[in-house]
Design a protein around this nucleic acid. Structure first.
Length: 495
RNA sequence: GGUCGGUUGGCCGAGUGGCUAGGCAGAGCUCUGCAAAAGCUCGUACGGCGGUUCGAAUCCGCCAUCGACCUCCA
């Protein structure tokens, strides 16, 4: 179906992508924990996987895209003084835990929409899959990889490691891990310090709790993804994604849980998106450089000079590879803003392109055909959007030349023109997920008014009344509307 | 301390053995009443040292340096 190659974090190699059951494809991505607003770093990860999802669909796969909502609340640490995140936030805001969940789930969806992300095909919640998680924990006990104690259930990493290898994803070995955990206290219950909770006993004051064979409690964080991916995608599925920071321990534990139940690897291709930094630093609240999507879009943040549109940010993300660290700063945002406009202008010109007489220029023809295939080749090479965008820019230059030559694509065959139009628009909109944000895009009233203004200015220009024509242009510029005179017509653009 | 990954021109950011990345910024030119837009041309690069090779930004080794993870994190 394609020549797609994916860098597999598990093998640490780029591998040819072979789906298990083509044309169907299973994609699981770890979603947010909805106890707080998602920040821009989260947005990058989800945008990356949105692009990946879009490209897989473009390749013709019938993708089941599962992205969970972690709403059960897990412990902030596993050292006894664990606090349930949903509940601690709920106390602060005087809300029911599920009100917190609702509030930030809605907020998350708003952000996804803002950045033009497609919804996953299934968005399961942890609280909706308690039964499956209990079931999985029981199977792990039966298989000898977990034990119940004092109403809690822990995964027995050492027992697991005797039959399978723990740490294959993160490249850690169990002895070094044991070493590192040795001096931590408050985990008397566990057989070993590296054991992690599958089920935690709830204290009487705990609100979010469910009945289980071990008493009232709540599921451990790692278990939900294993349970939900198995339920919707099967014991083995194609792609599992998430942020780099989830590699250990979260994804490592997921692997152990799944292998512990079904005795084989659950995931064919593990993919990890890299982190987003701001001004060279990892975003964090303590450094005061964490940006919320809404702050970026409104420009209401001390480190920003102005507002940047969601598509500018999305485009900035797409200009680098999903697996590279990306540093975001004002200069980068400004660059992206200009670059995006250039690309979207080309799309506009592209749709206006006609074809009259044909006198094919072999070089142009060949160049365009090659660039169109380069788009696919770039994406097939581990979703290399940076390379794709380079090809799109070069195509944009061709489009601009045609446009300047009286909107005629006469140097290329009709078939090539069709290929160009389809390829360009498809990659910009469907694959990269960009969209036109300009108010003019769907404002016919404004458009009519502008045509009138442009008409009046045209007359004054014909009368060499430069004072009037320049006044119109300058006043519009102050209003954020840029006038562009080409040889035979005038257009406008809202900045 | 352990694991993993970076270090590319003024800035951002692809590239992994020989072939122009691309964008933004800068210089010049074309078009134009002027401007903008667009096009053309141009410059500057691969952290350091050593090795492998006919040939290395790309492979290997060492060093320097930055970062992520190892505790919740996209």
């Amino acid at each position: 179906m394609s020549d797609l190659h994916i860098y597999n974090s598990l093998s640490r190699k780029k591998e040819k992508f072979e789906p298990l059951h083509p044309p169907f494809l299973g994609l699981y991505v770890c979603g947010p924990t909805v106890y707080n607003d998602v920040h821009l770093g989260n947005v990058r990860t989800f945008t990356s996987f949105d692009m990946i999802y879009r490209y897989l669909v473009y390749c013709g796969y019938q993708v089941r895209y599962v992205r969970n909502i972690t709403d059960a609340g897990h412990l902030t640490n596993e050292r006894g003084e664990g606090v349930n995140r949903m509940e601690s936030q709920a106390k602060l805001e005087s809300l029911e835990p599920m009100e917190v969940v609702q509030k930030y789930t809605v907020g998350f969806h708003d952000v996804c929409k803002l950045f033009n992300m497609l919804p996953p095909t299934i968005e399961p919640t942890a609280t909706g899959h308690i039964i499956e998680q209990i079931d999985m924990a029981q199977k792990l006990i039966e298989n000898g990889f977990a034990y119940a104690i004092n109403g809690s259930v822990y995964f027995d990493v050492r027992a697991y490691n005797e039959q399978h290898k723990y740490g294959i994803l993160s490249g850690r070995n169990i002895d070094e891990l044991m070493e590192g955990y040795r001096d931590l206290d408050g985990q008397e219950e566990k057989r070993n310090a590296i054991d992690f909770a599958l089920w935690k006993k709830a204290s009487p004051a705990h609100i979010m709790k469910w009945k289980s064979p071990w008493g009232e409690g709540f599921p451990g964080w790692h278990l939900e993804c294993s349970a939900m991916s198995t339920k919707y995608l099967g014991q083995q599925f194609d792609i599992h994604g998430g942020g780099m920071d989830l590699k250990f321990p979260h994804h490592e534990c997921e692997i152990a849980q799944n292998v512990g139940v079904c005795n084989h690897q659950p995931v064919r291709y593990w993919m990890h998106g890299n982190m987003l930094n701001f001004n060279g630093q990892k975003m964090s609240k303590s450094l005061g450089n964490s940006i919320l999507p809404i702050e970026l879009v409104t420009g209401n943040h001390p480190l920003l000079d102005k507002a940047y549109s969601p598509m500018t940010v999305r485009f900035l993300f797409m200009q680098s590879h999903y697996s590279s660290e990306l540093d975001i700063n004002i200069k980068g945002l400004q660059d992206a803003e200009k670059g995006l406009r250039k690309l979207l202008n080309a799309v506009k010109y592209l749709t206006a392109l006609n074809q009259d007489t044909i006198a094919i220029d072999e070089k142009t023809e060949k160049d365009i055909i090659e660039l169109c295939s380069a788009c696919k080749e770039s994406m097939d090479d581990d979703f290399n959007t940076a390379k794709l965008i380079a090809a799109l820019y070069e195509l944009a230059t061709h489009i601009n030349v045609f446009y300047n030559e009286g909107k005629q694509a006469n140097k290329i065959s009709e078939a090539t023109r069709t290929l160009l139009q389809q390829t360009f628009a498809t990659y910009v909109f469907d694959v990269l997920g960009l969209k036109e944000e300009s108010a003019a895009a769907d404002n016919t009233v404004l458009d009519k008014v502008m045509q009138l203004v442009i008409d009046i200015r045209k007359q004054s220009r014909e009368n060499k009344d430069w004072a009037t024509s320049d006044k119109i242009r300058d006043t519009l510029k102050d209003a954020g509307i840029v006038i562009k005179d080409s040889k035979d017509e005038t257009s406008y653009e809202i900045s």
